[in-house]
């Protein structure tokens, strides 16, 4: 389970990047967070990964406070970033092997890696190819394979579908659904409302470091997500002083 409790981050230059953010991602749930650039989505992920300390509040992973025990907390989380280049001179399997070992998975064989890569939709002939020749979609698949191998109960994704072609995007979503079905808590920051609409259980909108709206997929059943997105991104509604739906 992923949890943010009144999480606030003010940078040294005085900029308030996150302002009292509170949310929880339950096991078996996909939570998609929307927001314009600079809204605080990536800051939230950085706080959850312990890359920056919070000014106040707490970020918890499986109940472990990230600020107090960052290594203990990170044991329970996988991370997929927007545009990871990985090690270009390594093959897909070599990259996977290295990051698996960093994640503590030491007993995996080449066939195990091949199986995961196959599952994420990477073509077989690419397994032993150098990653520097990979397209963005192929690298993203490898990125998700790294997260799959770690098999942590929580998954953080930072705009993972940006730049993916429709086919890769669809395959990517299928893997996320599989993860959810396995009971993992999935937090995804994204601009991709169309893909998010297909898989999200809950959706949140962030604006200037605040969570201004959060709704379940059932609440959104009769609403147009695109209209909502535009509405929340362009102007903060007067009624959203407290996030609606929370």
């Amino acid at each position: 389970m992923l949890e943010a409790i009144n999480l606030t981050k003010r940078y040294e230059d005085g900029e308030l990047a996150l302002d009292g953010l509170t949310f929880k991602v339950e096991p078996g749930e996909i939570f998609c967070m929307f927001g314009a650039n600079g809204a605080g989505k990536t800051t939230t992920i950085n706080l959850l990964l312990g890359f920056i300390p919070p000014t106040s509040g707490s970020a918890l992973i499986e109940g472990v406070d990230v600020a107090k025990d960052p290594l203990g907390a990170k044991r329970h989380v996988s991370f997929v970033s927007e545009n990871v280049m990985l090690y270009g001179n390594f093959t897909a399997i070599q990259n996977l092997d290295y990051f698996s070992k960093l994640a503590g998975k030491r007993n995996l064989a080449k066939k195990d890696y091949a199986e995961v890569l196959d599952r994420v939709g990477l073509q077989k002939e690419a397994f032993d190819r150098r990653v520097k020749n990979f397209s963005k979609g192929m690298r993203q698949k490898l990125g998700i394979a790294i997260a799959v191998v770690k098999d942590a109960p929580n998954v953080l994704l930072d705009e993972p579908t940006s730049g993916l072609d429709p086919q890769s995007g669809r395959e990517f979503l299928e893997i996320l659904v599989q993860m959810r079905d396995k009971g993992k808590s999935v937090f995804m920051s994204t601009h991709d409302i169309f893909r998010a609409k297909l898989i999200a259980d809950r959706i949140g909108f962030m604006r200037k470091g605040k969570l201004v709206m959060m709704k379940t997929v059932q609440d959104l059943a009769h609403e147009d997500l695109t209209d909502l997105y535009i509405q929340y991104m362009e102007e903060q509604p007067a009624q959203a002083a407290a996030p609606s739906g929370i």
Binding site: F51, L71, K74, S81, N83, V84, M85, F99, G143
Partner: peptide
């Protein structure tokens, strides 16, 4: 850092 591998590596419990 530029390649993103540092962030990925440190997202593990790696001191």
């Amino acid at each position: 850092k530029e390649k993103g591998t540092l962030k990925l590596a440190l997202s593990n419990d790696l001191p």
